[in-house]
């Protein structure tokens, strides 16, 4: 038996918002530790890795590991039936082929139940080692969102350059060129407003803005975002989900021909 209850449907809605543009179907892997999901986009250029630890739930029970194969669009439609303040419970039998969503209104006067068929999803899992990166940039999530949106009006690729001076985002296209520079401001009082750059050496990498714009759909989940970069390795874009999990995106760099 798997059963997990979260106090606010809004959180699960935000998580779905953050994956639905990249992933069509995904296995939600449930264990006694929590729920995780790893899925690549159809062109295998990017990957999303989600972790929601059990301590983020009001109630959590998972008698044995179970993979819930879910069509993300179907789940998004069902979650749209919940109010943001509703409590939501997910429930699945060990050998079952459905997952049941129960929404309870804050005043407990309305209870809705939706059953969704599970899918058999044969997905490739990638082994991603935790590693130190050459440079990391932590910045307000809304700032990163704005930069990706603004530079998309100029070009398709952004060059991210980290130097002692700060981090520079540059895009160029037929109409011209745009450059946005952020300086380290780790002395700002409000932690969520800080730009904190760590760097072992200067580096410059290029990434497809189309995918970065998909990643910024997670902006509502966190105040800050951290970009981790190493030459010739995929970029990691991480949004922490309170203290109980994260959503990480990986994007393969563009390679010079």
């Amino acid at each position: 038996m798997f059963e997990a209850r979260m106090a606010q449907a809004a959180l699960l809605k935000k998580v779905l918002e953050a994956v639905k543009d990249l992933v069509t179907d995904a296995n939600w892997d449930c264990t006694s530790a929590g729920i995780s999901l790893q899925a690549m986009d159809s062109s295998h250029v990017s990957l999303v890795s989600l972790l929601m630890r059990k301590d983020g739930f009001d109630m959590y029970r998972c008698d044995r590991p179970i993979s819930l194969g879910i069509n993300i669009a179907s789940m998004t439609k069902i979650m749209k039936c919940a109010n943001n303040n509703d409590a939501v419970t997910l429930r699945a039998e060990d050998e079952g082929d459905t997952v049941v969503f129960t929404f309870e209104s804050a005043d407990q006067e309305k209870v809705s139940e939706f059953e969704m068929k599970l899918m058999d999803i044969d997905s490739e899992h990638l082994g991603i080692p935790e590693r130190e990166h050459t440079a990391t940039v932590k910045m307000p999530a809304s700032e990163f969102h704005g930069i990706c949106r603004d530079l998309s009006t100029i070009g398709e690729t952004v060059q991210v350059s980290v130097t002692k001076e700060g981090v520079q985002f540059t895009a160029s296209g037929d109409t011209g060129k745009g450059t946005i520079t952020l300086r380290n401001n780790s002395s700002v009082d409000e932690e969520s407003q800080q730009v904190v750059i760590t760097m072992q050496e200067e580096l410059s990498l290029s990434f497809a803005l189309r995918y970065l714009n998909f990643f910024t759909k997670a902006t509502a989940l966190a105040d800050s975002v951290t970009l981790s970069m190493t030459a010739d390795l995929p970029l990691v874009v991480e949004y922490r989900i309170e203290d109980t999990g994260y959503i990480r995106y990986f994007l393969a760099p563009k390679i010079d021909d």
Binding site: H44, V45, F250, K254, D256
Partner: peptide, 14 residues
């Protein structure tokens, strides 16, 4: 010019 890398070439498929 540049080409878009794929993740499969960076991480091991389990």
């Amino acid at each position: 010019t540049s080409t878009q890398g794929r993740l499969d070439s960076f991480f091991k498929v389990l």
